[in-house]
Design a protein around this nucleic acid. Structure first.
Lengths: 114, 114
DNA sequence: CAGGATCCGGCTCGATACTG
DNA sequence: CAGTATCGAGCCGGATCCTG
């Protein structure tokens, strides 16, 4: 048993880190929001989020799919279309997103005055 | 007025991005948690968060201070000590953190089964 | 103790072009 | 449309040592 010279806060730090590993980074939450709002196709999502590049979007979509936060469905048409939708699991992030949005609005108000 | 071929979701995307610009990244929230839990000194914070390096911590602390989320107080002792504390503004992130923590716990349970 | 300085490899990311 | 390929710059971040 080694002595610890600091307050242990792993019970909060670990779960938060787990979450950040999955939805952290600049883009993942924004992409989830965009899809949840009704953007289903690659170009739509791309256009709905300023500064998001093709390459990055492709990578992020794969990671989101791997974590079961979105589903990728092939529409057998021509040319082939793909539809992305958020999973039920992703919907459980609603509250997280709502909190971030609300905080962002308040913070902006605090900075620029009301 | 240009036509938009996608659903506009800027009313959510912009505030969330604002928030992420401030508390996004791997470390900022974890650092805020650690300080809020009672770690006041540089080395304490450093030790309380696995994998966090001196250089990165120094940089993150500056950014947090610039955004008024923490305060840096010099204790006139020898050797000089510094105390970091979270501001009232940072406390308004409690709900965000709670949601992230709660989601992390649920997600882990979902992955490993209960 | 609180941090700064330096060296430096790797990987992230943007821009552009291309394929099915 | 839905992505992949490639090039290249930049910065992130680790390791280590140093100062007040």
């Amino acid at each position: 048993m080694e002595k610890k010279e600091h307050k242990d806060c792993t019970s909060v730090v670990i779960p938060v880190r787990d979450t950040l590993d999955i939805i952290g980074g600049k883009w993942k939450l924004l992409i989830l929001i965009s899809i949840a709002e009704g953007n289903k196709h690659f170009r739509e999502i791309e256009r709905s989020i300023p500064k998001l590049s093709t390459k990055v979007l492709a990578k992020e979509l794969k990671e989101l799919e791997a974590n079961k936060l979105i589903e990728r469905n092939v529409i057998d048409d021509f040319p082939v279309r793909i539809e992305y939708t958020v999973t039920q699991h992703a919907k459980s992030l609603k509250k997280v997103i709502a909190e971030l949005q609300s905080w962002g609005v308040k913070h902006r108000r605090k900075i620029f005055g009301k």
